[in-house]
Design a protein around this nucleic acid. Sequence first.
RNA 1: CGGGGCGUGGUGUAACGGCUAACAUGUCUGGUUUGGGACCAGAUGACUCCGGGUUCGAAUCCCGGCGCCCCGACCA
Length: 415
Amino acid sequence: MLQSQLFTKTRKEAPKDEVTTNAQLLIRAGFVHKEMAGSYSYLPLGRRVLLQIESIVRDEMDRIGGQEVRMATLQPSEPWKQTGAWDKVDVIFKINSRTEKEYTIGQSAEEIVTPIAQEYVRSYKDLPVAVYQIGQKYRDELRAKSGIMRGREFSMKDMYSFHETQEDFDRFYAIAKEAYLKVYKRCGLVAKVTEASGGSFTEKLSYEFMVLTGAGEDDILYCDACSYCVNAEITKQQEADACTRCNKGTLARAKASEVGNIFDLGIKYPKDFGFTYKNKEGEDAYPIMGCFGIGITRLMGVIAEALSDDGGLVWPESVAPYRVHLISLATDDLEVSSTANLLYDALLDLGVDVLYDERKGVSAGEKFNDSDLIGIPLRVIVSKKTLAEGKFEIKHRASGESEWVSREDLLARFV
RNA sequence: CGGGGCGUGGUGUAACGGCUAACAUGUCUGGUUUGGGACCAGAUGACUCCGGGUUCGAAUCCCGGCGCCCCGACCA
């Protein structure tokens, strides 16, 4: 991608209303555009990051047997009335058609997926099964906040599984938990599995996946010796208490952001819809159901919060909009620009995603600052200086370290 | 939803109730320049959020909306 043709431009200052790091940086760098409180448009760079995160999530869900679907976002009110959510859940948007019919736009899909599963799951032989989707969700939040981290419209991966027995559900629950941890790790984050309330879904505990960041809106207590972690709102334990699980460590308190949540839904939804299957004994039985969510856009916000520095965004390679930011200084110099052009083509031939800053009349300082702000992991500089050395300069965004390498060595890294 | 703050060119700011709403940045022209937002000249761009009111006169004061941000509550 030629930067001179990129749809967006950077800006020096963030809109004064934005105080959170993710909103300031993502807007300044041109990744997102705010439409209204809690509703953002994702521009080319932001969209690319979302695609990267989605592909990681998709990969991990596929690995544990999830099958991707795309359920309707515009939904009838009937199933929501059938489960009682229409009146009980206050964040659902309700809309009326011209003919006074009632609809909702999806904020979650239990009411949609359960009747679909009912159509196809007739026998124990059809179980277990897990389907997921990645897409926009809508919640009528009273207060959207923190940039893209809590919106009225956001992107979420939601998976739903159905099982014959509690044991089988527990097995899958554990597998899904591991898959979730891999997702966060691949996104460059450390997430803690946190015991939390099951909300209005279930009496049981649910597990939240929490990333430690000051921008988070949850308080958690976690053990400094084992993996125990609990949402502060459901426990009487306090900071500095001894850990009740390992009896060795002590509990620390921290702000964290919830980037995923998994629930044991039991048989609530199958029961609401009269969804049974024939078990081995030929009897009707309700399947055990689970739901598993990952906030895609929130994850992007948390990465922006947790991994940025004073210069701007610092994307891990796995989710970066481009892998290489090629910067040509002295664009009027024929030798410099042709060397840079050739390197750009060579990288593209190797299948490397490159943002190429070949803008004319833009000072070196401005290009460097823009590059810092956009946060692509690897910067390759072509200038009179590098030409004199017969090498290219590589600078790593995260560490700030730079190295000088030959063209062969540079290209060899991407083979 | 309760409380607080803020609404002025695209962005960030300024302007005592009083002159043609100022400055920076951006954008456009031309020139110069190319290792950390460089420089020169010119140009462009605002119904001062909306609606009322007070006043000879309102960006400025008053009332009512709307919007945005923050705290709290909420959080399928």
